[in-house]
Design a protein around this nucleic acid. Structure first.
Lengths: 188, 188
DNA sequence: GTGTGCATGTAAGGAGTTACATGATTGC
DNA sequence: GCAATCATGTAACTCCTTACATGCACAC
């Protein structure tokens, strides 16, 4: 069977301890959502597909009167996950950042408003930084460290490093634009 | 009319000197494609839509026997572009990075292969860095500097700063994993 | 003379999101 | 009691990409 990114997300999250579709979605929201967002409407059909192909097994696991399904990785499932990690990544890094796109077209604005754009860009990065691997939302993935799991932490640090630099850069741009604005003001 | 991101891309690129749909696509590929990719199948219908709403005017501009359309921003078009830049950005930064996602699940691999993942991540970032505002492909936007246009340069520098840090970080991770691998090897 | 690039569009398909539909449990 | 959360799914829709269709111009 063909493994799509959503398949790998599901397999990976199951391996890290999420058991239900709902839990997978929650764990993803709290960790990888800014790198690879997933929706429940993807998770449930994907779990069914993975089960049909024998990569996961489903156990009915009701909680009181509320129905619940618990999923487990099979050996084939674990193998498929590892095979994916070994395979060369065919897709490049893609970014969709309308706020950053505005920087590209910043010259259409007068200096005074350019400063605002720089500030907004910084805010966007700060926001992204804050939600990358949200400590308050980790939930079922809380005890990574205790199990020798460090992937999530590593990805978090990588993002942190890059975004910190980006934020610094935006702050510098804002300062520069402000300085230019004042220079213009004292001239005119 | 509602301005979608593709609308703003088209308006912005027209303002920066691209005149035909094809030229807009080329300019976007050479500059903003990694931040906001566009396809010709978006550009042509969007140009028609913008014309219907009076934000651009179309002039037939054949080149020999080959039909060609030249588009110009109207005052309303320029105004719409500026209004977009002034408006708060509703969409957050979104990233799709399968290669980075693998870092998250890196623990499923033995140490030896974790090193490969770190190397691949670095390569992905290097690749992204190389194609962010490709100097050889700029084409119609070549003479930005001479016209007091610096947006493209600023965005390029922001990306450069962030990605440089990311690449450094990946190199460090790779070195760390290699060191751990050797330590394990000498133990066993 | 032929391949690459310029140039403009349309149609079909896929991936992913939002909305819909339903109901139990738990904490305040 | 009531809101938020847990929990599972389906249906409709949207955005975007790939493929299709067509043909001139220019450089080698």
């Amino acid at each position: 069977m063909e493994l799509k990114p959503i398949s790998c997300m599901v397999l990976g999250m199951l391996r890290l301890g999420a058991t239900s579709g709902y839990a997978i979605k929650k764990a993803a929201d709290a960790s990888t959502s800014r790198i690879w967002p997933v929706s429940l409407a993807q998770v449930y059909p994907e779990l069914a597909r993975l089960e049909r192909h024998g990569l996961v097994v489903r156990h009915e696991d009701p909680h009181g009167a509320r129905a619940r399904a618990r999923y487990e990785l099979t050996e084939e499932g674990e193998g498929a996950l590892v095979a994916w990690l070994r395979s060369p990544s065919e897709t490049e890094i893609q970014i969709r950042a309308e706020g950053m796109l505005r920087i590209f077209f910043i010259d259409a604005l007068p200096r005074r408003e350019q400063v605002v754009l720089a500030d907004r860009a910084q805010e966007l990065i700060r926001d992204l930084r804050a939600h990358m691997y949200d400590k308050d939302l980790r939930g079922p993935l809380d005890d990574f460290d205790e199990h020798g799991i460090r992937g999530p932490l590593l990805l978090g640090r990588l993002n942190e490093a890059m975004l910190e630099r980006g934020q610094e850069w935006c702050a510098q741009l804002e300062a520069l634009l402000k300085a230019e604005l004042e220079a213009e003001g004292s001239e005119g």
